[in-house]
């Protein structure tokens, strides 16, 4: 084994700093959310208590946190399912050339890079002019898809670019129908990556803010609710909420990785389809 060079240690230190930079602030509010009842928004801590968490579960002067959490969660699930289904279909379609494939591809890229407030504004305007009420499950849902779908599609591209076609050919040679080939050969191989797509679909939707801003209507999703709180709540209750949603996000991520691990363990011939593009 070659000796570690000096650059390794320098870069390790840099990396450690980067991780600290990423996680430091979150840890800070995690600590601050245990602030005592008299405590303020910054250090020093004024005692340690669960006061603000209790406060969170009680009736709030402004907003409807739990209602918005339920809405965010539901919307996240719907967006997740739609994203997975549509991006798999899209990914399959793009393996063959078809009319408008290039246009559609650039459209997807455009959808990813266009400033999100434009989507929000445009969708809001259309609903406004058509006289339709904006609602998180219709207009909000659509606007979020413009963000999650391209991600899903790009992941599917990455997967199918690395996909070995001979598996399918083998299945076909054995007399499997097109559907059987898909269900018993293609799907199990890409399953881990589908979990990745699902994770993206859910978390991106759950945290989405700008696209939902003008399209959610009178019932807020959680990020909108939190944003509303930042302008008129000045107690650590907001840190408590932040800690809880972050923990919830971690929980979801953990859940997906557990599922991924279980899947890859079940298969002896584990494919590397899901690796390298998490």
């Amino acid at each position: 084994m070659e000796r570690r060079s000096r650059s390794f240690y320098i870069l390790s230190a840099f990396f450690a700093l980067f991780v600290l930079f990423l996680y430091g602030p979150i840890v800070t509010i995690g600590i601050l959310s245990f602030q005592g009842p008299q405590g303020g928004l910054t250090f020093p801590m004024d005692g340690v208590s669960l006061y603000w968490f209790r406060d969170l579960f009680q009736e709030q002067a402004v907003g409807d946190i739990w209602g918005s959490f339920r809405r965010s969660f539901t919307l996240g699930l719907i967006v997740m399912v739609t994203t997975v289904v549509v991006s798999v279909l899209g990914g399959l379609a793009f393996r063959k050339r078809f009319g408008g494939a290039t246009v559609l591809f650039y459209l997807a890229i455009a959808s990813l890079v266009i400033p999100s407030i434009l989507i929000s504004l445009g969708v809001g305007l259309i609903y406004n002019q058509l006289g339709l009420p904006v609602h998180w499950a219709s207009s909000g849902f659509g606007s979020q898809l413009t963000w999650t779908l391209p991600f899903g599609l790009l992941i599917m591209f990455a997967v199918f670019n690395r996909f070995d076609k001979s598996f399918e050919e083998a299945a076909r040679d054995q007399g499997a129908s097109a559907w059987q080939t898909f269900a018993y050969v293609v799907l199990p191989i890409i399953a881990p990556s589908l979990l990745g797509v699902a994770l993206f679909g859910f978390t991106l939707s759950y945290d989405e803010f700008a696209r939902t801003l003008l399209t959610a209507g009178s019932y807020n999703t959680l990020p909108l609710e939190i944003f509303g709180m930042t302008t008129n709540v000045t107690s650590p209750v907001i840190f408590a909420l932040g800690t809880l949603t972050t923990l919830f996000s971690f929980f979801i991520i953990g859940f997906f990785f557990l599922a991924l691990w279980l899947i890859s363990r079940r298969k002896d011939t584990s494919s590397d389809a899901g690796k390298g593009m998490v």
Partner: peptide, 16 residues
């Protein structure tokens, strides 16, 4: 961190 809320990550700079 990419999968957690951007807004929370912004808020968390304030006590800092």
């Amino acid at each position: 961190p990419f999968w957690t809320s951007n807004i929370i990550r912004m808020i968390s700079w304030i006590p800092f």
